[in-house]
Design a protein around this nucleic acid. Structure first.
Lengths: 350, 350
DNA sequence: GTACGGAACAAAAACGTTTTTGTGTAGCTG
DNA sequence: CAGCTACACAAAAACGTTTTTGTTCCGTAC
């Protein structure tokens, strides 16, 4: 009994103590089979009293369901660093996904990178995967595909237009929202600063920017900064932008680039929002804490996590692939893009 | 063959194709048993060609090793919110722990909260746990203890002085470092702002503060703000501190409180570091991005993760419990605690 | 020539479930 | 009362490994 109460209480122990067979125990606990209500309740009581929890591996082996899914951050992998400052989207998503999976009684496993090194022992047994921001020809996606493991992605897979199990923001619409907002706030020309990762976010936002310029007759000014360069990369591009002639506004996809660029420009005398509007496509501590706070597109993380897990569960249950899920990003209007009365001419540079 | 190459290649398939028994396959791949070198290599080649990976659950069932550990953030649980802004320690630690466990071919599972709701199916089968910041009489710790599941904690368990499998900063020493630094920078009186979670961090830092005051003859001024109140809580306590008379320095344990307090005080005309020095016990985006940047104690996250995983592995292998691991926090000296020449008298308040 | 021993492998048990199939009893029908 | 059904439960198979125990073959010692 002492033994039973601790670590290894098995279905046999419960059966013996309840005076029934293991079949009856299993059926009672899982609400299956044909068991009288009285027996069912008695067995449940005994199991609860013993603190019996079915061994996850035995159950998984039998039913070939692991009851856990994997989460892999491709963009973090490409950063080569699992603790980049200010990329708090990841933690939020991991946390939100964890509580979302818990609601469905699933576990969530963090899997750094499947494409290099020996495979973590569990990785190929998981029931499904959430792949965050797959890049072009992503080997992780290829592996999952080859193994026939269900997966969903955040952001579409840029190389596989036929794949539809993804959830993302409507990047084209969001980009337009930002650009329209900047134009309405008085910006004549708008520079665009994107990243260099070859993922859909970068592709789609840039395409939307180019299209918007075409429509409005604006001259596109596009800069690229590697994601991994972070705030320093933003500072550097700020210098380049100033050297090329100050535009009316800058739209930086990542919050760290926006913060760095704004900082570099402010240090050289550019007033924000007086001389220049700044906006970012990805809210973070950097944009919130900047002086002035930088307007941003914001991900509704819980909604994203919910949609991803929901879709993954559907896929795991073999649902026919419906349309991708498009979420709307919220636009957070902050001081950095407030129209200023009596707007002055840009002072430094051009 | 087509079947074998995809999802369900089992040890039988490998055995059949290699013309041996499953025993031989198992032994060959695991480097056990008495197998001729030639056979061993042939089997390995066949397995590799078929992309065979032993089923984690079958293996786990047999060897009662899950090859995965759980990570549970108690302080996040108490925040009731898995995406708190600026608490980036968590993501960093999760990421660092994930890559650390991967190096040992272990999986890392995120487990939100074991003490409420139905248990996640896997939680009781994991090989071990890392519990981040357990609080007093923590039910999660109690559960693990009852189940006999090995675990280590970040921060000691405040209610169990005999438990020694923990890794933490030397909070007493760190607190002294900060206070000495503030005093050396010219602060006569130093106010202390702690959290309300009943964990070792709060207890030990406050105790060290009190002891330091006793030694130096300073008058203790202690404030408490709930962790969950974040920046707003910091702003509120900033007002209280001002009302009670401006001290020479404020030491806020959490970065969000520090940022809020500094902000509230600055808005009321207090100059930092001119009139007041501010320092925090936990670096975050808030402290880094504040104007001026706030001095902080910084966790070496990769080192912490490495120590935790290392210790957990030792415990899982049944090592006799050695001493706890004490890491040194780095002190990041920033503008907010720079001595100012010709220090002025505090202006507002007292 | 029988006995012994080791090398190289195979057979079978075990891990703890879930699920399929079996079994016995009771009640009902004709 | 034979035969059928429904009910409540038990026995056994299966899941894919690892590990323990066998088995075969062959060389060598007595």
């Amino acid at each position: 009994m002492a033994r039973e109460l601790q670590h290894g209480a098995t279905i046999w122990d419960v059966a013996r103590r309840a005076g029934v067979s293991i079949t009856t125990v299993s059926h009672s606990l899982n609400g299956k089979g044909n068991i009288s209500q009285a027996t069912r309740e008695r067995v449940r009581a005994v199991a609860a009293e013993m603190g019996y929890v079915a061994d996850a591996m035995a159950r998984g082996l039998r039913s070939s369901k692991m009851n856990a899914i994997g989460l892999v951050f491709r963009s973090l992998d490409s950063l080569g660093n699992y603790g980049p400052n200010g990329v708090d989207v990841f933690m939020k998503l991991a946390g939100a996904a964890a509580s979302e999976t818990l609601n469905r009684n699933l576990g969530l496993m963090l899997v750094p990178d499947l494409s290099r090194g020996p495979l973590p022992p569990f990785s190929m047994s998981l029931d499904g995967y959430i792949v965050f921001a797959p890049h072009l020809d992503d080997p992780v996606v290829a592996l999952l595909e080859k193994r026939g493991i269900p997966y969903v992605t955040w952001d579409r897979d840029p190389g596989r237009p036929d794949f539809r199990n993804w959830v993302a923001h409507n990047d084209a619409a969001s980009t337009r929202t930002v650009l329209d907002h900047l134009a309405a706030a008085g910006a004549r020309s708008i520079a665009y600063v994107g990243g260099t990762d070859r993922n859909a976010w970068n592709f789609d936002c840039e395409a939307a920017y180019v299209a918007w310029c075409l429509e409005t007759g604006a001259e596109p000014r596009i800069y690229h900064v590697p994601e991994r360069d972070g705030v320093e990369g933003g500072q550097e591009v700020g210098g380049r932008i100033l050297a090329d002639g100050l535009p009316g506004a800058v739209f930086c996809l990542t919050g760290r680039h926006a913060s760095g660029a704004a900082q570099a420009l402010q240090e050289r005398g550019v007033r924000i929002p007086g001389d220049l509007l700044v906006c970012t496509g990805s809210d973070s501590e950097h944009s919130r804490q900047h002086k002035p706070p930088i307007s941003a597109l914001d991900v509704d993380i819980p909604a994203a996590a919910a949609a991803l897990v929901q879709r993954l569960c559907e896929v795991m249950e073999g649902a026919s692939e419906p349309e991708p899920v498009l979420l709307a990003a919220r636009f957070l209007h902050r001081k950095s893009t407030s129209p200023v009365k009596g707007r002055t001419k840009p002072r430094p540079g051009s």
